[in-house]
Design a protein around this nucleic acid. Structure first.
Length: 628
DNA sequence: ATAGGGTTAG
């Protein structure tokens, strides 16, 4: 009887952590009947428990550990109370903890309120419970009460409080807590410091995070992981990889979570060499590709340019969730293989995965970038009618992009006018780009006006509109924009281009001479342009504002960061070249033409990407016009 | 006994 019941407990809950088996504890694993019994007469022990129980707290301890639902916890609570064991701080804290683990925060709090004596463990469980459950005010209140009670907060409580500061983006409170940490001399605790580093990073003050990180003498794996993740999230994935190497030099061996973090950083960097090294390391250390790590690796390979590797991993993964599927769909989207993205969609339901709003963003994006207008419209209505997902601004942005690229500007504009969700910069930018592509000056003005209402000081909106005027020959309007920019003291923000070569990533800005092989690069660029001109390359100097600085000129040409990166790629890598550009930076017409010619004349495949998009530059393949 | 780090779009 016992064995059977016990088996049921463990087979029904394979996820339960292996625990010391206690012959009496298994009595709790049964019992719909018992529940009924408890319900009717709570103070009385069930026959089974009576048989085996005594007033030994150890019995209740293992019973609590093996609880599998709230009902059981409550009935044990009653029994503890009846047996007068609620004075045992060890037991009561365990009870508190089990309530918290089953998300019964109110029950826990009631118990906590009635506790005659609260020790640091009680406080820490309660504060941590509120923190995990997202009940931030309650967490702060409890912590405040703790401090006011005059006790020294222990090292277990503070990480939870810091976590809440992070989750609520409450940097001010975070600094106060940091102060408290110092006041109580707890600044040497690794758990607390790691939490603080994470809090600073996620509140956007990465320099403060780094300062604290550097001060820490014993950085453990979590600390390193937090810092690596912070750099990746703040747009400096290169630094994540640097730290990853340093960590290993310090003898810290990465685990699965840190692997996910570094895979993610590598995806953001877009460096295929690194991607392979990291994937090798994962295999060497025998980390299985579970849903999270597997999904991250798919994303990494896709963003490093290899949709085939990405698909290989995808096919190998045994368990996939909606994120895995959405990642793969998005990957096909930005690789310009819209049909393949669409083909995956019906397979999702076959595998019983329900698409979510992100899946539909990826699908619509895939349609817009492959020019699948009808399909996109179909998906858009399917999403609402069959899956009852209300489109948000991102879905609308994809639709505006889809219609806009196809030249259906009026339809796109109508959609914007009729939508009820709040319009953002991305939405209007999509329309503005479409206007530029189709030379629709009037609508461009409307789009730009809306953009400048939201972001009156963003120079890129002015530059974009100015370029549209230039293309239409409306020089007076263009001049006005330039005056506005000068009056507002706005300067074009510098753009960067990165290229992966020589096993690392090199960064260029326009007219950049800082690279150590700068001389060779410029010489090669000069001779290359001569070669290209023989083949019919005519530099396009239409977009005057793109290059305000005359010093960037190289003969009658401009040394765009894109060109410098492409040339460095030619010099230093035998294979194809992948360059990555500052997010939102558009490749200008001249660079586009330049790359097209390079790809033919030098027989080299060039891949351009910003954070998420790819465009293969091959003759006949590049269909994006001068706007990418 | 109680504590910190991980995946998709934009």
């Amino acid at each position: 009887m016992f064995k059977l019941k016990n088996q049921r407990l463990f087979t029904a809950n394979p996820s339960l952590k292996p625990q010391k088996f206690c012959s009496v504890a298994c009595a709790l694993s049964i019992s719909d009947d018992d529940h009924q019994f408890y319900k009717q007469k709570p103070p009385i022990l069930s026959p089974q428990l009576q048989e085996t129980s005594n007033l030994d707290p150890k019995f209740y301890l293992s019973a609590l550990i093996n609880c599998k639902n709230l009902q059981q916890i409550k009935s044990l609570h009653t029994q503890l109370s009846v047996n007068g064991l609620l004075n045992d701080s060890f037991l009561i804290n365990k009870l508190l903890y089990v309530y918290v683990r089953y998300n019964a925060l109110d029950d826990a709090h009631n118990l906590f309120d009635k506790m005659p004596e609260r020790n640091p463990v009680s406080w820490s469980v309660m504060v941590g419970g509120f923190a995990k459950a997202g009940r931030y005010m309650k967490c702060f209140d409890t912590f405040r009460e703790y401090i006011r009670s005059g006790q020294q907060p222990d090292v277990y409580t503070l990480p939870s409080v810091i976590r809440v500061c992070r989750d609520t983006q409450n940097l001010k409170m975070g600094r106060v807590v940091h102060h408290i940490v110092h006041k109580f001399g707890l600044h040497m605790n690794t758990f607390i410091c790691a939490a603080l580093v994470d809090m600073y990073a996620k509140c956007g003050v990465i320099d403060d995070a780094r300062k604290l990180f550097d001060k820490m003498t014993d950085k453990d794996l979590t600390t390193w992981t937090v810092m690596m993740g912070a750099y990746a999230a703040s747009g400096n994935p290169n630094e994540s990889l640097v730290l990853f190497d340093q960590m290993q030099e310090h003898g810290v061996v990465p685990d699965k979570i840190s692997m996910v973090t570094i895979v993610n950083a590598c995806a953001k960097l877009g460096a295929m060499n690194k991607a392979k090294v990291i994937h090798d390391l994962i295999q060497k250390q025998n980390h299985s590709l579970d849903m999270i790590l597997g999904t991250a690796v798919i994303d990494m390979y896709a963003k490093c340019g290899s949709i085939d590797f990405a698909r290989e991993i995808f096919d190998k993964m045994r368990e996939k969730n909606v994120i895995t599927w959405s990642t793969m769909i998005a990957a096909y989207g930005y690789h310009g293989q819209g049909q393949k993205a669409l083909d995956l969609f019906p397979l999702m339901s076959k595998n019983r995965i329900k698409p979510n709003n992100v899946t539909f963003v990826s699908l619509l994006y895939a349609c817009s970038h492959s020019g699948l207008v009808q399909e996109g419209l179909k998906i858009f209505s399917l999403m609402q009618e069959k899956f009852f997902i209300k489109p948000d601004v991102k879905h609308y942005t994809c639709m505006v992009d889809l219609l806009g690229r196809a030249g259906k500007l009026d339809q796109a504009f109508n959609m914007i006018e009729n939508m009820t969700v709040e319009k953002d910069v991305g939405l209007w930018s999509a329309l503005l780009s479409a206007c530029r592509m189709h030379n629709h000056v009037e609508m461009a003005q409307k789009a730009a006006e809306s953009l400048l209402e939201i972001q009156p000081h963003n120079p890129s909106h002015y530059v974009m509109l100015s370029n549209i005027y230039a293309k239409a020959g409306k020089w007076e309007n263009m001049a006005k924009i330039r005056v506005q920019m000068t009056n507002k003291n706005l300067k074009k923000t510098p753009g960067f281009t990165w290229v992966e070569a020589q096993n690392s990533v090199h960064k260029f800005s326009s007219g950049d001479h800082s690279h150590c092989e700068s001389k060779e690069i410029y010489e090669r660029l000069k001779s290359l342009i001569e070669k290209l001109e023989v083949s019919g390359y005519v530099p396009d100097t239409e977009f005057v504002l793109h290059d305000v600085n005359e010093e960037l000129k190289l003969g009658n040409l401009y040394a765009h960061s894109e060109k410098l990166a492409v040339v460095y790629g030619l010099i230093s890598t035998p294979e194809r070249t992948t360059i990555r550009m500052t997010k939102n930076l558009r490749v200008c017409g001249d660079c586009h033409t330049f790359m097209k010619f390079v790809s033919v004349v030098e027989q080299r495949e060039i891949i351009v990407r910003d954070a998420k998009r790819f465009h293969h530059v091959r003759e006949g393949v590049c269909s994006c016009g001068d706007y990418w």
